[in-house]
Design a protein around this nucleic acid. Structure first.
Length: 337
DNA sequence: ACGTAATA
DNA sequence: TATTACGTG
């Protein structure tokens, strides 16, 4: 998932409190995927209501964004639209991996192999229309605005920061930087600990900002050259070159200037090179959206989470108190303008 | 991932 | 008060 250019970028640790009153364009796909893969029981079974509907993503949205709202952060969720044609090979491949993982999850669970089951459960996560629609419902109940991207959500989120309608993109992936996002926040979570994949070890993770211009300056390259580096290491739309990782890709692009020269030198080719590069530099986006933080709806919150999806009334009531405590004062500051 | 109770 | 273990839906 995403493009592996993290080692090349400069990051700066921040406190969540420094984001107060800032508008954060949340990469919905990335965030929901994260919730669905991590909020699980030890054998990989996700949280579910009595009707068997998955609720892990709803739990993640409720608790994380209650906290962010309490910090005074103004989140906007940006959902994916229709992917470009040249992504179809990648999407087919992901679907096959997912299906294989799903059957291996079942097998491992039958044999009582918890760790293996958990691993395959994570790999079989799919964002279906139920997950998308139920997420949008909860967000609207919480008063959090939703923007529908015409194409890739990360491109739309990047556009919103460029145009000044948002201050940051929030995503664990780096792709919004390829789409030109000036500022990207990673690790915008509450608990400062993350499990290392495959290991039983945990590391402390703090929220961090990646500044695109600053990163480009440190590397001594331009934005189009960063896109060329991404094309070398592989993106959601192409496979990348053999034995070329991010460090060597940076050296090659700096030395030869652009990817065409690099490919000539190596005697290699990348399918749809022109289209993919143009897609990163000039992606389909829209200005047809409204970012308005509505008043959260208490009755609908209780009905949706407790009656429909079996959440604890006590916990939802507690979250409600925290949401409403700041949304009241925030509403005032909005009214003043 | 997050909340909460238990633990030290 | 800070860290860990367990439940959440």
């Amino acid at each position: 998932m995403g493009t592996d250019i993290g080692l090349l970028l400069s990051r700066r640790e921040i406190e969540l409190s420094s984001l107060s009153s800032r508008v954060v364009a949340v990469d919905a796909h990335n965030t929901l995927y994260q919730f669905l893969s991590i909020i699980r029981q030890r054998d990989g079974t996700p949280l579910m209501d009595s009707g068997g509907m998955v609720t892990s993503h709803l739990s993640g949205i409720l608790y994380r964004f209650t906290n962010l709202i309490e910090e005074g952060i103004r989140p906007v969720f940006v959902f994916d639209g229709t992917p470009p044609d040249f992504k179809s090979k990648t999407l087919d491949k992901r679907r096959k991996v997912r299906e294989t993982a799903h059957s291996r999850w079942d097998e491992a669970r039958e044999k009582g192999l918890e760790k293996e089951a958990y691993k395959y459960a994570q790999a079989s996560v799919k964002l279906d229309s139920y997950v998308i629609e139920s997420s949008k419902t909860l967000l609207s109940i919480m008063g959090i605005p939703v923007v529908q991207a015409p194409c890739e959500g990360e491109a739309q989120a990047a556009h919103m920061v460029k145009s000044g309608d948002a201050n940051y993109v929030a995503s664990q992936d780096y792709d919004s930087l390829l789409f030109g996002a000036p500022f990207v926040i990673r690790n915008i979570a509450i608990t400062g600990k993350r499990k290392l994949p495959g290991k039983d070890a945990y590391v402390d993770v703090k929220p961090e900002v990646i500044d695109l211009e600053h990163s480009l300056g440190q590397m001594g390259i331009t934005h189009p050259q960063l896109v060329d580096i991404a094309l070398c290491v592989g993106t959601d739309y192409n496979n990348g070159l053999e034995n070329i990782g991010q460090k060597r890709a940076l050296e090659l692009v700096k030395k030869h200037g652009d990817i065409e020269s690099v490919l000539r030198k190596l005697g290699k080719e990348i399918d749809d090179l022109e289209s993919i590069r143009d897609f990163f530099l000039n992606p389909p986006v829209t200005d047809d959206y409204d970012i308005i933080w509505q008043k959260p709806d208490h009755d609908r919150l209780i009905d949706f989470l407790c009656n429909e999806h079996d959440f604890s009334r006590e916990r939802v009531a507690k979250a409600w108190e925290r949401i409403i405590a700041v949304s009241g004062s925030q509403q005032k500051t909005l009214d003043q303008f």
